[in-house]
Write a protein that binds this DNA or RNA. Structure first.
Length: 425
RNA sequence: GGAGAGAUGGCAGAGCGGUUUAAUGCGGCGGUCUUGAAAACCGUUGUACCGAAAGGUACCCGGGGUUCGAAUCCCUGUCUCUCCGCCA
């Protein structure tokens, strides 16, 4: 959520930013918000004054009663009674105004960083970097990963359908082992980069979902356990980022770096077609997430370091990748700057998104009220960042496609100590 | 799931209708003393909002209520602890 003060102080910048994100009627809504805030202030001023009067009179009554002046006290009580009616009205008006303000403010997306390219669709994303890893030559008829899965019994989507439903893959045998190898490899990489490992809850309450912006914006994306009013996490970002919800941190502890492996659950309502085939888009997948809580002055440097971290993993896995800087129209609601990593899945001949590294600046921390005390002892909002390092299902898809050969599927060297085998067949 | 107890400032812990703008201790910060440090002593130490400032208002788990006045009384929700039951 944006801060109302920013709308007041930097109106032009806000409107331009909203437009870059293709937010409709930016001027009108910003004006309306400022007007609502003006109303709020004036009501509050009024309310505070009357409360002050009322408090004084109450103290007076206390004194009068203490001194045995009962009749005089009664007179003052009458005065307070009229104030009380007014107070009640003002309190209601204030609350209503605050709700109105927040309901509208929460609909505003984060402002894009100045480096965000103008554009509306994924085609307008900027290719920030292309890897120099060669796309493998797979010969005549390379198999897509769903066919390889059948051939080598790596995972089974039909069984997933039987047990649960579409989009819940079941990994087996060496496929399951490969999955586990990747999880351990990614966690070890994150640990080596200084991230503390977290095993968070896989369900979160409403406050947490709201804190990271998954509610109300992306409610349809999450599985909701209505009986207990909990949400299955769509990413470890949600529980991990919420660790510091409502806290004021010491500047000295920044940046805080955390990583976590979790399964991720996404409803992906309305998805269909060839591009969601196999592991390309599923309802449950494994992901290792890296999260940082940063001083505002450092957050963009930190984002670049996170990019390097993800890049390093892809290089070790030998997967051809490219990094995109997302345009205003393709970025997520809460992000100020997002880089996507895509790997080339050589049999499908498609780029698959396997990581998204975002800087949210203070957009999440404003909702979560996560702050830090700066060198002048002033309290200010922290910056939050996160990225996938990495998302499993699609990495598996591209590994098995890109490493297929006559004898089976070669295992990238860095993974062999985790899998315990060098070929999957 | 059953029974009981509880939720107060960074922590510990008092307060149970009117100098509480929350005692006291610990911790933090600043200072005195000291070559330096420790100890001792003195001061200071929450957040949000309104206000140019002075200052004001709100917040003692959340929500509602009683009262001129609520941390304190009532209702309700949530959570925690203890005991019992069940259980990986």
């Amino acid at each position: 959520m944006l801060q109302i003060q920013v709308l007041r102080d930097q109106k032009e910048r806000v409107i331009l930013g909203l437009k870059k994100k293709h937010f409709q009627d930016a001027e009108v809504i910003v004006d309306k918000l400022v007007a609502l805030d003006d109303d709020r202030k004036s009501i509050q001023r009024n309310l505070n004054d009357i409360q002050a009067d009322s408090n004084k009179l109450a103290a007076e009554i206390g004194q009068l009663i203490k001194n045995g002046l009962k009749e005089e006290a009664e007179v003052v009580k009458q005065k307070v009674a009229t104030l009380k009616i007014e107070l009640k009205n003002l309190e209601d008006a204030l609350k209503q105004k605050e709700v109105e303000l927040e309901t509208l403010l929460i609909t505003l997306p984060n402002l894009p960083h100045e480096s965000v390219p103008v554009g509306k669709t994924p085609e307008e994303n900027e290719v920030y970097k292309m890897s120099n890893i060669a796309i493998p030559d797979l010969g005549e008829n390379p198999l897509p990963h769903w066919d390889l899965a059948k051939k080598y019994n790596i995972f089974d989507l039909e069984l997933g359908v039987k047990i649960t439903g579409a989009g819940f893959p079941l990994y087996r045998g060496k496929g399951a082992k490969l999955q586990r190898a990747l999880i351990n490899f990614f966690l070890d990489e994150a640990h080596a980069a200084g991230y503390e490992e977290i095993i968070p809850p896989l369900m979160v309450n409403e406050d947490s979902a709201r804190g990271t912006g998954n509610l109300p914006d992306k409610e349809a994306q999450m599985y909701h356990v209505t009986k207990d009013d909990l949400y299955l996490i769509p990413t470890a970002e949600v529980p991990i980022t919420n660790i510091f919800r409502g806290d004021i941190l010491d500047e000295k502890v920044l940046p805080i770096k955390m990583t976590g492996y979790t399964p991720c659950f996404r409803r992906e309502a309305g998805s269909y077609g060839a591009h969601v085939r196999g592991l390309n888009r599923v309802h449950q997948f494994d992901k290792i997430e890296i999260v940082q809580f940063a001083h505002p002055k450092d957050s963009y440097d930190i984002q670049l370091k996170m990019l390097e971290h993800v890049e390093g993993i892809l290089i070790k896995l030998g997967l051809p990748y490219r990094i995109l800087r997302l345009c205003g129209g393709d970025m997520s609601f809460s992000s100020a700057l997002t880089f996507d990593f895509e790997v080339f899945s050589a049999a499908q001949k498609r780029w698959l998104e396997v990581s998204s590294v975002s800087n949210f600046e203070s957009f999440q921390s404003n909702r979560m009220q996560t702050k830090f005390r700066d060198e002048n002892k002033k309290v200010q909002l922290i910056h939050t960042l996160n990225g996938s390092a990495l998302a499993l299902a699609r990495i598996v898809a591209s590994i098995i496609e890109n490493y297929q050969c006559e004898e089976g599927i070669k295992i990238p060297e860095v993974l062999q100590k985790y899998t315990g085998f060098d070929i999957l067949n």
